[in-house]
């Protein structure tokens, strides 16, 4: 029983991280149908930024978010203006294909540039609470894992509130539901896309902190993109609240598979699940039929 709960807890911790990883990708995909596979690379860059901020300014990793999030908002802004804006006018399938290809190029560039600049060495931010655990009924809960779960809940809730309660958030949702109709209602659609893309990239900062507290290297970007895509599909495309559940599902399934088939095939189980859902339920497990 204790072992089972322990495994489940690890599943929940990594699941919360996966949810955070997928959040930005899901927002961008839901609003403007861009499949930004560079998201994993952006998270990797965010982790390095956290690393430098902690190293040079002696910030706590979680405190460093006040610098990292605005930085990545600006990066998202620049990426959109420079590369993605010109895709807005394309028809739906072309838009998707080209955004996939361009962001794929960015993914290659970022991961290789990071390897060249900062080497492929494993890095991690060490804090006073790294490795500390709470013992709860025989289950060991690491501080960082608990912090990840809280962070995930807060961030998803905040994004949800932003999209449902603020004027601009409502405009973004209108654009995601019907681009043309939104523009007839007087919404500045390209601006809504620009801001939501920038927010999507800024959201890479949150998983970036959690990754920085674990070990990471430049090649982690492929893995993260992969996880984000899996969660995106599990959650149902464009469903932000589903992201948290999709992440938890993947986390728990992976944790259980470590127990059942061994650590070597942990990734494979998630990928097989992904391919099966893609084949038989592409609208996602919880999603509605598009």
């Amino acid at each position: 029983m204790g072992a089972l709960l322990q495994i489940l807890s690890y599943g929940v911790f990594s699941g919360a991280l996966y949810g955070l990883v997928a959040l930005g990708l899901s927002l961008v995909f839901g609003v403007m149908n861009y499949l930004n596979v560079a998201h994993g690379a952006l998270i990797m860059l965010a982790s390095y930024t956290v690393l430098w901020v902690c190293y040079y300014l002696h910030f706590d990793p979680f405190l460093s978010l006040i610098l990292v999030i605005p930085t990545f908002f600006v990066i998202g802004w620049i990426l959109f203006m420079g590369l993605f804006q010109r895709l807005l006018a394309l028809p739906e399938t072309e838009k998707l294909k080209n955004s996939l290809l361009i962001s794929f190029g960015i993914l290659l560039i970022c991961s290789n540039a990071a390897t060249m600049l900062w080497t492929a060495d494993e890095r991690a931010v060490a804090t006073s609470y790294t490795g500390k655990v709470i013992d709860l009924l025989g289950v060991r809960l690491p501080y960082i894992g608990l912090a990840t779960v809280f962070l995930a809940i807060i961030v998803v809730f905040a994004v949800h509130l932003f999209l449902t309660r603020t004027y601009f958030g409502k405009a973004i949702r209108a654009v995601s539901q019907d681009y043309e109709a939104a523009s007839w209602m007087g919404i500045n659609t390209s601006r809504a896309c620009l801001v939501s893309f920038a927010i999507g990239v800024a959201l890479a900062g949150f998983p970036g902190v959690v990754i920085a507290l674990q070990t990471f290297n430049p090649m982690v970007s492929f893995d993260l993109t992969n996880k984000a895509l899996i969660v995106l599909i599990l959650a149902g495309v464009g469903s932000l609240r589903g992201v948290l559940f999709g992440g938890l599902l993947l986390g728990v399934v992976e944790a259980a598979s470590v127990f059942l088939v061994g650590v070597a095939y942990r990734e494979v189980v998630g990928l097989v699940l992904f391919v099966l859902v893609l084949m038989f339920r592409p609208q996602g497990i919880g999603g509605r039929k598009a």
Partner: peptide, 8 residues
Amino acid sequence: IGTLALAM
């Protein structure tokens, strides 16, 4: 993305 998953 499905073929990418298969390759992995």
